[in-house]
Design a protein around this nucleic acid. Structure first.
Lengths: 245, 245
DNA sequence: ATAAGCTATAACGCAACGTTAGAGTCAAGA
DNA sequence: TCTTGACTCTAACGTTGCGTTATAGCTTAT
């Protein structure tokens, strides 16, 4: 298929296809001798994937990165995208609720607090930041916290002390090579700690590490122990996961 | 309220508020003597409106234009936004259906045509292009066409001849002043023609005119009678509406 | 009074295309 | 066969909606 055929089929512009080719996101199957782009059915499949991601406001760079990952599995991706889309619809429902209430508010039928008027918008929580959480299942730090809350006071304290110890030590050595034995030994403690509470196989552990630097909320929290700690941990965790997979 | 208070409340950045001020989309109630922006509760209401529009992918320019219109009615706007949001949710549901089917397709459970794989995306139909259609109710040219189809052949031909006459004449004079008596006389014929078929009060008539230049599909069709005709008609229709409201 | 945290303007940066501009290609009809 | 209109290419600049420094004034607490 030629450019405009594809463009018409999926409802995007020719320029968009040119651009995707240019940035290496979607290279046509081949170009004929006159330089015309020719797309295969496989290319269409890939394009469909891309558009799903776009619906979820993933930046093109991220999309490329994700789809180039040797571990990329289309079935897994489809499942993930479905979840994210459902999440997106929930947010949309929130916005619709807000607007419904706003209409009634204008009629004087109900009251609305300032906060309420903006429920559902939530521009800060880009769906793609929740990606890691979804992609790596539900084993997030948040869950860890939940579990901690269900423990008794004594155990809780013990765990929190451990937590602090681990972080403080990591903060101390945060300027050395993350792949060094020293760093790996300490990061293993973090790995073991997590696995006392939940189930974190190496791949999940690695994904968690990436979240530390990609989600500012985590970065901030972690960097309270020392600036750059999140980045250091991310690198160390990646190395650890690669060694132990 | 100061900038960051507003920003925190609604979940947008300070820079965004600065920018909205800069382009005159949302000017704070006043600035104190040191130059600090101070937002009122009314400003918050307006900001809410803006964010609703943004959810619908209206460009900021459009939002500004719409909200600056002296005819702008917040209640009407809220109703419209609600409709558009519902529409958006329907499209999202379509995408979700498509992805569900894609998952089953990958498992070999069902077949999918090429077109089917892209149902719901439809980037060409930006919601804001449907704006006019929604805003001015359901009295669109499309409806006109529908009505025409339900007429018998004779009447139909008579109407189409009339239609052609009107357009040809308008095309002939399309370089004169749209506000001139000549132009206004001819555009009145178009107005009367439409009102024989449907119900087009002046405001609707005006909106229709704008659609001629904003929706390329209309522009193309109309300009077949002569390049620039759509623009000419739009101007004439606006003038006509202003005189007859 | 000095630091920490807020505010301001100004200016550059950036993604994801849209929009010309200039030139080659292809399909169909006169 | 020639031409004409529709399609294609690359190249390059323009646009939107901010993010991101950088520099400087303000405000509040210690």
């Amino acid at each position: 298929m030629k450019v405009s055929e594809v463009a018409d089929l999926v409802g995007i512009s020719v320029r968009t296809l040119h651009y995707y080719d240019q940035i290496g996101l979607l290279t046509p199957a081949y170009t004929d001798l006159t330089g015309y782009r020719v797309y295969s059915d496989q290319d269409l499949e890939k394009l469909q994937q891309i558009l799903f991601f776009k619906q979820l406001d993933f930046p093109l760079k991220k999309i490329k990165e994700i789809m180039n990952d040797p571990d990329y599995d289309q079935n897994e991706a489809l499942e993930m995208q479905r979840n994210l889309l459902l999440e997106k619809r929930n947010r949309l429902d929130q916005v619709i609720k807000t607007i419904n209430k706003s209409i009634r508010y204008r009629k004087g039928e109900v009251t609305m607090s300032k906060k309420e008027k903006f429920v559902g918008f939530d521009f800060s929580k880009n769906p793609y930041k929740a990606e890691a959480r979804k992609r790596w299942g539900d084993s997030t730090v948040d869950q860890t916290n939940e579990k901690l809350e269900r423990m008794n006071a004594q155990d809780k304290k013990a765990f929190q002390d451990q937590f602090n110890d681990i972080y403080r030590k990591l903060a101390e050595i945060r300027h050395i090579d993350p792949a060094s034995e020293m760093a790996q030994k300490e990061i293993k403690k973090w790995y073991d700690y997590l696995n006392k509470i939940g189930n974190y196989p190496p791949t999940v552990f690695k994904g968690l590490g990436q979240m530390y630097v990609e989600d500012e909320r985590f970065t901030k929290n972690i960097d309270q122990f020392g600036e750059g700690l999140a980045e250091f941990m991310c690198a160390a965790m990646e190395e650890f996961a690669d060694r132990n997979k």
